[in-house]
């Protein structure tokens, strides 16, 4: 069983996804939380703290996996565990930008280079392959993803490519999911 949980900031999508995976999880099946956020400042720490408190006592083992989901798929293959991956918006950002953030000189070099959309296709294909591996290697998989598509703003090229890539990934995730839920003001609305 694979489920996509989708929603905006502060929509309550995490709480719903946690409830859903704990309901699906049968005793004896390991339950993993794949945390994808890279910590840069106190605000990130605060957010992570809030999420940890929300998960406390629900039986999750947390694995930090900001990118390269394929690696974790290999490790988890034998166990056939249940997995909650949160959040795809971080994975896409980390795959596209994380080396840039950790080393600003690389970022400067990158943005000064003339780039095609190919790199983003590369990221799209990489994540797609890795998700398929992850799906095949586990029992139940719930992926949380973010709605970043409706503020109507035009951003710089890099951000627009990020939005496009995440959008493409979300479409792919919805296609291969058994259920898709959109969470609005904490209320889950099933859209597939």
């Amino acid at each position: 069983m694979m489920i996509l949980v989708y929603g905006g900031s502060g929509s309550g999508k995490s709480a719903f996804a946690e409830k859903k995976i704990t309901e699906l999880n049968k005793s004896g099946i390991p339950l993993y939380y794949l945390a994808t956020m890279q910590v840069y400042d106190a605000e990130d720490e605060e957010r992570i703290k809030r999420h940890r408190m929300q998960r406390a006592g629900k039986g999750f083992t947390t694995i930090e996996q900001p990118k390269d989901l394929g690696n974790i798929a290999l490790e988890l293959r034998e166990a056939k565990s249940d997995i909650l991956l949160e959040c795809m918006s971080n994975v896409v950002a980390n795959e596209m930008f994380s080396d840039a953030i950790s080393d600003p000189s690389i970022y400067d070099k990158k943005v000064s280079e003339e780039k095609s959309f190919d790199k983003y296709e590369g990221v799209f294909n990489k994540i797609k392959d890795e998700i398929i591996k992850l799906k095949d290697s586990c029992n139940n998989l719930i992926i949380v993803s973010n709605n970043v598509f409706e503020d109507g703003n035009i951003y710089d090229d890099e951000t627009m490519k990020y939005i496009k890539t995440l959008g493409d990934i979300n479409v792919f995730l919805a296609e291969i999911s058994d259920e898709v839920w959109e969470v609005v003001a904490g209320i889950p609305v099933r859209i597939k």
Partner: peptide, 18 residues
């Protein structure tokens, strides 16, 4: 509905959305 967009760079904007 104000949460369905790119997370703003401005901290106060982020707090408002959240």
């Amino acid at each position: 509905e104000v949460g369905n967009g790119i997370v703003p760079i401005d901290k106060n904007e982020r707090i408002y959305r959240e």
